[in-house]
């Protein structure tokens, strides 16, 4: 029973701010950003690594924060959806989604936005078809994906190409 109460020291940088935390060993990174740090933009849809709503960037790579323990992220740099906009200026991926009516309920949006941000940052070479594959780890139940793909294609510069 003590094991559930024991806390472990971790140092993580989240959205540019360094945090030194004492966290339970079993705490997930999603719980850490949502509950310890109050960054509730990251959403939990399934808590078993399928839906992708909780996707954040860990050292620049998209990761499901429901499957990462906070202690595993010790020393890492984390980016969440709250890091994207700069004051009132939306990040290009956010603006592209606004322009294309990307989302409806938008519960899945943070995961898509961070997945696409990683594609942009990592200069992924994509076609419309491989973009679908890259986004297939994020579930949306509202849109049928067309509007999300349109937003992603716009921000990734895939609009001119045929849908091959």
């Amino acid at each position: 029973m003590n094991s559930t109460n024991s806390r472990i020291a971790v140092a993580i940088t989240v959205n540019g701010t360094a945090h030194e935390l004492q966290v339970p060993a079993r705490q997930t990174l999603a719980e850490c950003v949502r509950e310890e740090l109050g960054l509730t933009g990251t959403h939990l849809g399934c808590e078993h690594g399928v839906c992708g709503a909780c996707t954040v960037l860990v050292d620049g790579q998209a990761a499901r924060s429901c499957l990462v323990l906070t202690v595993q992220a010790d020393g890492a740099t984390i980016e969440t959806v709250e890091s994207l906009a700069n004051d009132d200026t939306l990040h290009a991926v956010q603006q592209a989604m606004v322009d294309n009516h990307g989302f409806q309920c938008a519960f899945c949006a943070p995961g898509f936005l961070m997945t696409i941000k990683a594609l942009i940052d990592n200069q992924a070479v994509l076609t419309k078809a491989t973009l679908r594959e890259e986004l297939s780890g994020n579930l949306c139940r509202c849109t049928g994906y067309a509007s999300i793909l349109a937003g992603a294609e716009a921000v990734l510069g895939l609009t001119g190409e045929s849908n091959a």
Binding site: T40, V81, L90, G102
Partner: peptide, 23 residues
């Protein structure tokens, strides 16, 4: 007209408040 959604700036920046966000 396909007017841009009023909801989006809030929902796409993590500023939405879903029930699990109530603390």
């Amino acid at each position: 007209h396909a007017v841009r959604r009023v909801e989006d700036p809030r929902l796409l920046t993590g500023e939405g408040r879903y029930v699990d966000d109530v603390q």
